[in-house]
Structure formats: C-alpha cells, structure tokens
Simulated assay, not measured.
Amino acid sequence: MTTTPADASSRNTRPPKAQAALGVGVVVQDGQGRILLGRHHGGTWELPGGKVDPTHESIAEAAVRELREETGLEVDAADVRVFAMLHDVVGGINRVSMGAEVTVRSGAPRVTEPHLISAWRWTGLDALPGSLFAPSAQVLAAWRPDLSIEHPPAHRLMIADGTAAAGTDI
C-alpha cells in the first residue's frame, strides 16, 4: 500500500511563487491596414494591451477587455487571433507577452485612461515611430519581421491555428 505524504494535496493546490508577469499586446488594424498606437505620457508609443487578469480569462478575452478599457473599441474574442508568445526578463521578473491581432471596421478610438495615454493614432506601417514601448516593439517584430523594428531581445514562440511552432529568439 502506497501512502501519500500529508502535504501532497496541499502542494497541488498552493499557488506557485509569483515570478512572472503575463500580458497581451494587441495589434489593431483598420480597414486601410494601419495599426493603432497610443502615446504614453512616458514618451513611448504602444499597442493597446496590458496584464491578463488572474481569473479564468483567456488571452483573447484579455485582449478584448484591454482594448475596450483603453480605447472604447469593441471586438469579439472570436475575432482575435493570438499569434505569438514572447519572453524576456526585466528586473529579475519573467515577462511573458502574448501577441494578438484583430481588425476593426468601424469605431473611433478614444482616450479612456488620460492618466496613461494622451492620444491614440492610426499609423501606417511605413510611418512607425522610433520610440516604441519595448513589449509593443517585440510584439510588432514577431507580427511582421519584415518591418525591421528595433526591440530588446526576446524568446519567441509563434502560434498558428492553435498550434505552436518551434521557439526562436528575436
């Protein structure tokens, strides 16, 4: 007869020690192929996005929520495509950024968090600003490697149709 140590069941239910941050960056395109960028008060331009809530929220649901909270734009989670997972380390914390994309056909983004973002702007891929927020630059570089966007190095795992391709560094 095998005995189970008294702490085995609690070990399976205890939360792990936090050592990572999980977020999503959303590449939002309009009907003209432009992408949406926000001007942060810190001086950088960034994609809509943010942390994934510690609930049963999927990455696509987090993308929808963050887009709505930050810009007022409404999209359906079924229309969001998660295309990459990026990993780097900042200040001793693992940062995992999921890249997602969605196209919006109507609606105008508005500044809903003026303490963070001063303006949202539709930007052509040929006119991307140089001062991109690092996770946004990493997401954009994974989304469109042909754009040659400067960004900090990150490990990249591409996701296609629900399956992951081999991980690479970017």
Results as ranks from 00 to 15, higher is better:
73 L>P: 03
59 I>S: 06
98 M>D: 05
74 E>D: 14
51 K>M: 12
88 D>C: 04
64 V>W: 01
97 S>K: 00
66 E>L: 14
67 L>P: 07
69 E>S: 06
88 D>S: 02
59 I>M: 09
78 A>P: 05
61 E>D: 14
59 I>G: 07
85 M>V: 11
60 A>T: 05
80 V>F: 00
66 E>W: 09
95 R>F: 08
58 S>D: 08
85 M>W: 03
52 V>Y: 03
72 G>S: 07
74 E>H: 06
90 V>H: 14
84 A>Y: 08
61 E>S: 08
65 R>Y: 08
92 G>D: 13
53 D>A: 15
86 L>M: 12
81 R>I: 01
65 R>N: 11
95 R>Q: 15
88 D>P: 02
60 A>W: 05
86 L>F: 05
94 N>A: 14
92 G>Q: 10
55 T>Q: 13
68 R>G: 09
76 D>Y: 06
62 A>T: 06
65 R>I: 05
64 V>L: 02
94 N>L: 11
62 A>L: 07
66 E>D: 11
76 D>W: 03
76 D>M: 02
64 V>A: 06
75 V>T: 12
59 I>C: 06
96 V>W: 13
88 D>N: 08
64 V>N: 04
76 D>F: 02
81 R>V: 14
68 R>Y: 12
65 R>L: 07
92 G>S: 02
73 L>C: 10
96 V>R: 13
87 H>Q: 15
92 G>T: 03
86 L>N: 04
51 K>D: 10
70 E>W: 00
85 M>Y: 03
70 E>C: 01
71 T>Q: 11
53 D>P: 05
77 A>P: 00
88 D>A: 06
53 D>T: 09
60 A>V: 01
73 L>Y: 11
61 E>C: 05
56 H>E: 13
62 A>G: 08
89 V>D: 14
53 D>N: 13
67 L>R: 02
84 A>N: 04
71 T>R: 01
60 A>M: 09
86 L>K: 04
74 E>G: 03
83 F>Y: 05
81 R>Q: 14
66 E>K: 12
97 S>I: 04
73 L>S: 09
77 A>N: 04
78 A>K: 05
55 T>Y: 10
55 T>C: 09
65 R>C: 01
83 F>D: 12
75 V>M: 04
69 E>A: 00
